[in-house]
Design a protein around this nucleic acid. Structure first.
Ligand SMILES: [Zn+2]
Ligand SMILES: [Zn+2]
Ligand SMILES: [Zn+2]
Ligand SMILES: [Zn+2]
Lengths: 137, 137
DNA sequence: CATAATTGCTCTAGCCACTAGAGGTTCAAG
DNA sequence: CTTGAACCTCTAGTGGCTAGAGCAATTATG
């Protein structure tokens, strides 16, 4: 049985974040000591590691809740989990596409400044006029 | 003189967002009609377009505040503006790098599921064990 | 065993950049 | 003059935490 601090050390998840996950219903409310302190089992640690890893991979809390619900029915088909992962992959790709457009536009903007005063700074002019941009964003 | 609704239509910025920008000090508090309604000039419209474009390019509100302050001193050197844009470009690149790692990892994960039950779903297993991942994240 | 340092508890508020809604006032068209 | 759209202010909610106040419990040291 681990205290919340020990669990935090072993998983790299901060103490208030563990309590937050409990509040959000990702971690079940666990056993308490006589003095009302949380005591975690190995199973709890594994679940927290799962949550942490899913968060590191960018899954939203609501999606993680769904994934946990699915993994409680091991005999069911796994389409649900696959669909969640695919949808997330698609989100990530959309974000990359948007950021690459920004990157391109920002590169163009910063490379055009001849470096004199603010009144002829290309950065300021480009921000004032989207017409100078290559793409929508 | 434009009402807030007309300004909204012309810039594509929603009405509550315009009021929010005023509250944040990006837009100066403007003239009011007899009945206390905001009235915007062409200059106000241009400033809002600047803010909107900078936001679309991903600049934070605080950075936009700084850019506006700089552009009020047209005779000064423009290093400040250039530095803000370069720092933002660097942020964008960092985000892209992180997302590309996620993309690779998610591609790998979804492609490994043989599509049976939850108990042997690779998605679920991969989430449980970062050791299966190719990269840190 | 007493005391002190550390860790734990709950509850509230703050972060960012909006967005939504309540409850009321002003404006413009007919 | 009446109607209805647009406006006003104020408060609260979003996501995923993080920080702090003010206590209680546990652990380490003497
Ligand atoms: Zn410049
Ligand atoms: Zn643009
Ligand atoms: Zn699967
Ligand atoms: Zn991993």
């Amino acid at each position: 049985m681990l205290s919340i601090g020990e669990l935090s050390k072993r998983t790299g998840v901060k103490v208030p974040t563990i309590r937050y996950y409990e509040q959000m219903g990702l971690l079940a409310a666990v056993e308490r000591s006589g003095g009302n302190q949380r005591r975690y089992s190995r199973t709890d640690l594994e679940r927290l590691a799962f949550i942490r890893h899913a968060r590191d991979l960018g899954f939203e809390i609501e999606r993680i809740r769904e994934l946990i619900a699915l993994s409680n029915h091991p005999k069911d088909a796994c389409e649900g989990a696959d669909r969640i992962a695919l949808a997330h992959l698609s989100d990530v790709r959309d974000k990359i596409d948007r950021l690459k457009k920004l990157e391109h536009e920002l590169e163009r903007i910063v490379s055009h400044c001849s470096g004199h005063t603010v009144e002829d700074c290309y950065v300021i002019r480009a921000l004032s006029d989207h017409g100078l941009c290559d793409h929508e964003h």
